[in-house]
Write a protein that binds this DNA or RNA. Structure first.
Lengths: 115, 115
DNA sequence: CTGTATCCACAACGATACTG
DNA sequence: CAGTATCGTTGTGGATACAG
């Protein structure tokens, strides 16, 4: 089936900047990557796996990704509340992009000890 | 020859976020893409080709990319001053990443007319 | 032609604490 | 378990004007 295109307002229309604007927030790529690699996840589970992100920022990021139709939120049970975050088709289709970022990062970046 | 790895301070070391932090500024991906596609460019030439970016922001972006060893600045002549910006090896090696962003943007995003 | 200097606005992040 | 509420700080971008 056809994928629903994500809308994109104004800008000087350019597929690259538009994409950058979608996944350009600090934690977006990792969140998407974790969901690609490990499938649907709950909030805290995701938080721990990512490491270093605060509840607030994770929450905001998830909201943002959802707004952009890259992610779905599904309430699994109530009491205790359980939620699953999973990628939409559009979200999953980002895999090549994320994968290239991963590959590039691995071979071109080096952790600095000088901190 | 071996590529000089780009340094990367602290963070919670993750190749993806690290990469995102390097090329995550709004105009970085387009700038890199333009330089990949069209080769070395002067300041104003680059500015016009990108479209919609201010001198100040372009200047800042170029400084940032240079600091990160993704870009080189070469003074070609003085009077009038002429400069060439070109990618370093590390910068050029980003092509697959940028290319995937372009491909994804083309097939998954749609320009909204509602603005 | 290649930038800087201001100044302003707002987005993004982070730490911490707290709620249903 | 899944978030919100605050509050403060830094990052990022944009408009405009000006300079070597």
């Amino acid at each position: 089936m056809s994928q629903m295109p994500v809308e994109c307002k104004g800008d000087n229309w350019c597929p690259i900047t538009a994409t950058a604007n979608l996944i350009g927030k600090k934690w977006h790529p990792v969140i998407i990557h974790r969901l690609i690699e490990e499938g649907p996840h709950g909030f805290n589970s995701l938080k721990e796996e990512i490491g270093g992100i605060s509840s607030k920022v994770l929450s905001e990021s998830l909201d943002d990704l959802q707004e952009k139709n890259l992610l779905d939120r599904e309430v699994v049970s109530e009491k205790p509340v359980r939620v699953k975050y999973k990628l939409t088709e559009a979200g999953e289709s980002l895999e090549p992009v994320i994968e290239e970022m991963l590959v590039w990062g691995r071979s071109n970046l080096v952790e600095s000890d000088t901190i």
